[in-house]
Design a protein around this nucleic acid. Structure first.
Lengths: 148, 148
DNA sequence: CGGTATTATTTAGCCGGCTAATCATTAGTC
DNA sequence: GACTAATGATTAGCCGGCTAAATAATACCG
């Protein structure tokens, strides 16, 4: 690398490697990066609408629609129309979607253990604070409609 | 959110928001998220091969090939065959690719300022250390060929 | 009640990630 | 020199992001 790492580029690299690690760990379960967070929500609460899921995970309805399609096709969940509103469809787990819970939780713990290996409890607390501040910073920055 | 944020999910959210911010800031320059790092390298050193660029940025040749195609089409760079080896093509900036340097640098500084707003110099040093450790952790984890 | 506005989901197309396969070129070996 | 192995770039297809547009259903207002 010919130019020194900016902190921002370092964050970019961490993101890239994190994505790669997630991909690697979930591959054998037939799950892709965007899918485990959806399962986590549904294990806790089935019957949510597409929109509710999209809002929870801060992605667009278009993204959610497509991911849910793929997960339904892969057998993790099913979508049923809401009897009270024909525009709405609600999302429910299949048996397979429920059956993978233990494995997915273990996979998530594995990723977390890998990512933060060697950090003391105090360091993890400090790091959490830093990441929360960064999240807040970025959230505010993207919400301000740029005049440029 | 019905389950508490794990640190890992917090990192996931930071990545997502960071991507979004980068997208937002570069939109007006006609650049997409993966493209500014390529320009940064080329401002410093033109004539690199596809493979060299891919290795520098830790992406696959397929990804680099496609991104370069798009950037050439958008007018930022051009690719020329290497006279010594017909498999190789080398990447050079166009006038436009050079002309946007100042604006791109400013955009990058803007993202950095937004992301780390409110951090003291000491905190930034600690954060850098943490991110470097995380990068190393993830790098090692992905390189180990998982037996699972 | 009729007309307009809003909403929920989907599709198309762009982007950057990946893997796998392909093709032409080059390197290596006998 | 002939053959095989390796290499560089590309394409196809999958994924998750986005925006824009579309369609059908529902809400709202006069």
């Amino acid at each position: 690398m010919h130019f020194p790492d900016t902190l921002d580029f370092l964050l970019h690299q961490v993101c890239h490697l994190h994505h790669h690690r997630v991909r690697q760990v979930f591959e054998s379960l037939g799950l892709y990066r965007g899918q485990p967070p959806i399962l986590r929500i549904l294990w806790d609460e089935e019957g949510l609408t597409h929109n509710e899921l999209a809002l929870r995970l801060h992605v667009t309805p278009a993204t959610m629609s497509r991911t849910l399609q793929r997960m339904e096709k892969a057998g993790f969940l099913m979508r049923k129309p809401d009897p009270a509103d024909q525009r709405v469809s609600r999302v429910y787990l299949t048996g397979h979607g429920r059956a993978v819970q233990e494995q997915v939780q273990q996979a998530l713990q594995r990723i977390e253990a890998d990512t933060f290996a060697g950090f003391t409890a105090e360091e993890l607390t400090i790091l959490r604070g830093y990441l929360e501040r960064i999240r807040g910073n970025l959230w505010r920055a993207t919400e301000e409609k740029d005049p440029c």
